[in-house]
C-alpha cells in the first residue's frame, strides 16, 4: 500500500517536473513599431515609457520586439531588439535589463527617416510573431499613422492578420488634421478597415496614463 502510494506520488511529480506540454500556447508576443519620421521622432520618449511598461508586464516565455518604421520597414534590419524571455524568472529579469539598455541607447541615438512605411513594418511584425508561436499576438504601432511611401514601394494589398491584435498608440493629430479633422478620422478608419479586413482586431490607445489597456483583450 505504502509503496504504491509513494510510487504514484513520484510518478505525478515526475510528470509535473517534466512539463506535461500543453498544445495551446499561452505565451504573448508583442511587436512594437516606432515611427521615427519627421517630428514624430520627438515622441520617442513616450515610447520608451511604454516599452518599460511592457518589460515590467511581460512574463517568462513571452516575446517582445521593438522595430523602427523608416523608409523600408519590411526588413530584419529595422528590428532594434527582439527577445523571447527565458522560462525562468531570474534569467528573464536579466534579459529585460539588457533589453532596457539597448532601447535606451536606441532612443538616445535614433535618426529620423525620410519616409514612413507602416505597412512594411506590420508585415515584418506578422512574420516575426508567427515565428514565435505566441498564443496572443499584439502589434503596437507608435505612430501618427500617416503612411508616406517612397517611390516604387508597393504596399496597397490586403494584409493577413488573423489572430492579431493591432493597437495604435499615441496617434497624434497633425497640423492638417486640425484644419480638417476628417483627415484624422479617415486615417484611423483606413487602418481599422485594413486590419479588420485581414482578420485582426483594432484598437486605439491615446491615453498613455492607462497603459494597462494595451494588452487587454
Amino acid at each position: 500500500m505504502k509503496k504504491s502510494v509513494v510510487a504514484i506520488i513520484l510518478l505525478l511529480m515526475g510528470m509535473l517536473l517534466s512539463g506535461c506540454p500543453d498544445t495551446v500556447s499561452h505565451s504573448r508576443g508583442v511587436y512594437m513599431l516606432l515611427d521615427t519620421s519627421g517630428t514624430y521622432k520627438n515622441e520617442l520618449n513616450k515610447a520608451c515609457a511604454i516599452i518599460y511598461y511592457l518589460l515590467g508586464t511581460l512574463e517568462p516565455g513571452d516575446s517582445l520586439a521593438v522595430a523602427r518604421i523608416d523608409t523600408a520597414s519590411f526588413s530584419e534590419k529595422d528590428i532594434v531588439k527582439k527577445v523571447t524571455f527565458d522560462k525562468r524568472p531570474s534569467m528573464s529579469n536579466g534579459q529585460k535589463r539588457i533589453f532596457r539598455d539597448k532601447i535606451d541607447k536606441f532612443i538616445f541615438s535614433a535618426k529620423g527617416s525620410q519616409y514612413t512605411d507602416i505597412t512594411g513594418g506590420i508585415l515584418q511584425a506578422v512574420e516575426y510573431l508567427d515565428e514565435t508561436g505566441a498564443g496572443k499576438k499584439y502589434i503596437l504601432i507608435f505612430s501618427d499613422l500617416k503612411e508616406d511611401l517612397a517611390k516604387g514601394y508597393v504596399r496597397d494589398f490586403p494584409l493577413q492578420m488573423e489572430g492579431f491584435n493591432v493597437v495604435a498608440l499615441n496617434v497624434t493629430k497633425l497640423r492638417s488634421d486640425n484644419v480638417d479633422p476628417r483627415e484624422y478620422m479617415k486615417r484611423l478608419e483606413y487602418w481599422k478597415k485594413r486590419t479588420e479586413a485581414g482578420g485582426g482586431s483594432w484598437r486605439v490607445v491615446n491615453d498613455l496614463e492607462r497603459l494597462d489597456s494595451i494588452l487587454a483583450n
Binding site: 506535461c20 505565451s27 522560462k87 524568472p89
Partner: peptide, 13 residues
C-alpha cells in the same frame, strides 16, 4: 513563484 524557476514560468497544464 520559485516553482516557476524550477519547472518554467511559461508552460501550462
Amino acid at each position: 513563484l520559485p516553482m516557476s524557476e524550477m519547472v518554467g514560468g511559461g508552460s501550462y497544464i
